[in-house]
Design a protein around this nucleic acid. Structure first.
Lengths: 206, 206, 206, 206
DNA sequence: TATGAATGAGCCTTCATTCAT
DNA sequence: AATGAATGAAGGCTCATTCAT
């Protein structure tokens, strides 16, 4: 009769948020579509109005998580001055992000596991790889600028960028396992210091 | 009088190796018990003579992987001299290990995803956590000795140990994604250099 | 807006009736869930919308059978006059019931075998025991009233009640084996006569 | 080399006794061949030296149980005088038998359930039926003799024989359920009294 | 548009039976 | 004769997906 007006994109987002929670709590492979529907407060069949399969929904959750990270970090980095400051801020913001997202932190592991090329979930894995490379490029660009501006010594910035992200990833894993305290501000501070020391121009000069 | 003689521990190991391969190729959750049996060249039912469930078999695979790593790295580290050398060797050996194990590398991600505390697989998760902490302690001990011996400046060795492992973990992830080349000897070299620079006593003195 | 409308209790009953048939034909342990689904004209998975396991479904079938018996016998007994008449009617109705239910008669044996305390099927066994005792109490009450009213001589009514049910159970077993003819009206008649003779007040008086 | 001398029939019997125990404890369908082998203290494969299948072994257990009953009751009945005494003794001995066999009592229910014609276990079911009819014939012969000798009134002895066995079967079931106390000597006494009253010549005369 | 009842392919696990020793 | 490791058919149960309402 009369078409109820539904904000589809909005509802889609709500579903993704609900799914993200449940995925984080139980792990992607243990979660049933009905669990997600239940958490989202909708019917099981309705999920399929927004996502054509569990795989697509999963990909959507992962994409959203990456988007959250980009939004969280990206916006606050742009107006910063030196490359050093940006690197330091990047590390700090990354920690803040995971601290804030603590409840869905374990999702990252599933995200990683799912992103390995062999998995049938091609929707996801190519996406992740691309996003990941984009982050590396982003960091690398900062490093390059740092070298240009005399902040950093010249070096293989691609490797350093990889290192920085690797460091953050690995620490997130330890945070999930409860090995490091994600809320301790000393941690990102110390990490950043170590890093900047090894990048500093003065080291080489000596 | 007496039945077929079988080296049970040996066969158990063969099954684990077969399972490790299949897990790496397809991901733990996609692999069927029949796949493993098939790869191991035995009947499906025979698996249950050695493992009471898929979960237990999975735990066994993970434990074996960790054991492989410990064996690979541990044995070659002991006879080395200075702490610096040991750290450098640890990084290099870790890279060598993953380069050698390239075919089962992606298993690590499943291992991690499975090891997050919430997952029902308690057999695994406590094991992983414990193993992981043991590694950190091991590195930390090297660092402490390095400080005593004047190789390294004084600092929070717990954090540095965490960092080193995090770095290696994160890089392994990138290796799996194909972002870094695990066979390039420059990578561990550069990583180690960065690290040692940031730990070196002389930097601070200056 | 709203999903398919289904009379769940009604469908549950239909499934139980179908299962009852198949159980009677092949024996509980030989019947597969898929057999039941097939007979009920539904999909295998649908069974699990109504029963969480084969055990629960089995318990449901048994409960239904007992219910049928209670309904069949109970309703027609109430308006009868003397205790003698009621006992006689109880025996006759029990025979009529099994004659009518001839097709599912053999189910009783499975029901009994399953109801023995040791079997894991606790859902069933406690139920059966309780129902059985209820029947005994019911008969005992009739006997007590018969004594009060001078129909029967005084005696241990609990034992007699047990006897009466035992007799009926045992004869049902023989009916299943084809040893007695359940349709012969002389059988319940003769049984009842024997019984009433042994209960009659006049015997003792003499 | 040298053939070990084994008393096959003896060992066969030991296996049957072991199986009888386990069947009684867990129910025929829940018992695994390995359980029986374990209880019998032999290897799983050895069972198949004595029985070609689980079905045959099960049939053997049931036959043994019937044999035990026949032996227990039969031998002590022969030298008794009147038919009344024999009937009374038969009831008492039946109770004594189940009291003595209390540990394997629940086996009877499985025996019955298995004996229903439709069950695939044809080995067993025809056997049971035949044995059962033999018992009825036996009782009937006693009754006939009782009539000839003037102990009992004339009546349909086939039905009475059925009744007597039905009564005993039904009471055994109640004993298994814990409804009657198998050790209470009043029970068989009372049962027998009821029965003999209803059979007595004098009743009819009056 | 929303729903949840229905479905059946698919998987883990069991266990009677076989057979090499 | 005795054994127990190996097997694979079989069955209970799950869950992503469909579709009638």
């Amino acid at each position: 009769m009369c078409a109820r007006v539904v904000d589809k994109p909005q509802k889609r987002l709500e579903i993704l948020r609900a799914a993200m929670q449940v995925f984080a709590e139980q792990g992607v492979s243990k979660v049933k579509m009905s669990d997600i529907a239940c958490r989202a407060g909708i019917g099981k069949g309705t999920l399929y109005e927004y996502f054509s399969s569990k795989e697509e929904l999963t990909a959507g959750v992962f994409a959203l998580f990456m988007q959250d990270y980009e939004d969280f970090v990206g916006h606050r980095l742009e107006h910063l001055g030196t490359a050093s400051e940006q690197i330091k801020a990047f590390i700090r913001l990354s920690f803040e992000f995971v601290a804030e997202k603590e409840d869905v932190l374990s999702l990252i592991l599933d995200l990683w596991a799912t992103s390995v090329p062999r998995s049938g979930l091609d929707l996801i894995d190519s996406e992740i790889s691309r996003e990941y490379r984009a982050f590396i490029d982003y960091i690398q660009a900062i490093l390059e600028r740092g070298i240009e501006q005399g902040d950093f010594r010249a070096h293989r910035t691609d490797l350093t960028a990889s290192m920085i992200l690797a460091l953050l990833d690995g620490l997130m894993f330890q945070a999930i396992l409860g090995i490091i305290d994600i809320h301790d501000p000393n941690v990102p501070e110390t990490i950043a210091d170590h890093l900047l020391i090894s990048l500093a121009k003065i080291e080489i000069d000596n």
